[in-house]
Design a protein around this nucleic acid. Structure first.
Lengths: 107, 107
DNA sequence: ACAGCCGTTGCACTTAGTGCTATAGTAATA
DNA sequence: TATTACTATAGCACTAAGTGCAACGGCTGT
């Protein structure tokens, strides 16, 4: 059912994209957004973060640089001393789902 | 020349991918990474952040939710009261280069 | 033996991130 | 017209993430 859901979301997004590209929609407001019902970003356990990194076969230092963060931060994420939140958490999920290519082929 | 550079990086990355997929390379260490010479993530001016959001035609609230951050934070980014750093800054650059699709079609 | 990277730990500091409140402008509804 | 709702801004105060540094042991290659 995750595939089903994402398929629906994709269709809706494409539709919305077409609409505002046509100038029909001005801006995506909270109303339309609520209907998109974007899934809340789940927390990542320390072990999960470590797994994400090891799956990509990079050291903590390299991982940190790729995420534009510090070695110290990555270390504390993986030990559970600090918890990634906000944009950091989102970025980790993106890497988990799409791999490091997304973060490497930037600019 | 940015295209040239990214082409080289892409080729190197694909080569490296093939190598460690074959089990030849254990892990991407700092040595190999330094040769990749990943470009340092540049700061984003408040106006630049606002432009990124407006290009995607979303409100501050929607933009915040998509980046898994708070409305308050996005507002202060755009006014220059707070500066995005680390993973947040990286994520903003990704959105700038690839659009909001990357952040929407996750999970 | 030496140098270099990796991973862990501990300490201490700065500031980003967050929440809440209030304000003003705009658009659509009754 | 009144009212409802969304957007954007501003100000205040708190917490915790993010950062830097130093030291240690383990491992590898020269």
């Amino acid at each position: 059912m995750p595939t089903k859901k994402s398929a629906i979301l994709k269709a809706m997004h494409e539709t919305a994209t077409g609409l505002h590209r046509a100038g029909v929609m001005d801006q995506v407001t909270l109303k339309e957004f609520d209907r998109l019902c974007l899934p809340p970003v789940k927390d990542l356990a320390p072990a999960a973060i470590k797994r994400i990194r090891q799956k990509e076969r990079v050291s903590q230092a390299v991982f940190a640089s790729l995420l534009n963060t510090s070695l110290s931060t990555v270390q504390k994420w993986e030990v559970g001393q600090k918890k990634p939140t906000g944009a950091a958490l989102k970025l980790l999920h993106i890497v988990q789902d799409r791999g490091l290519d997304v973060v490497m082929h930037t600019s």
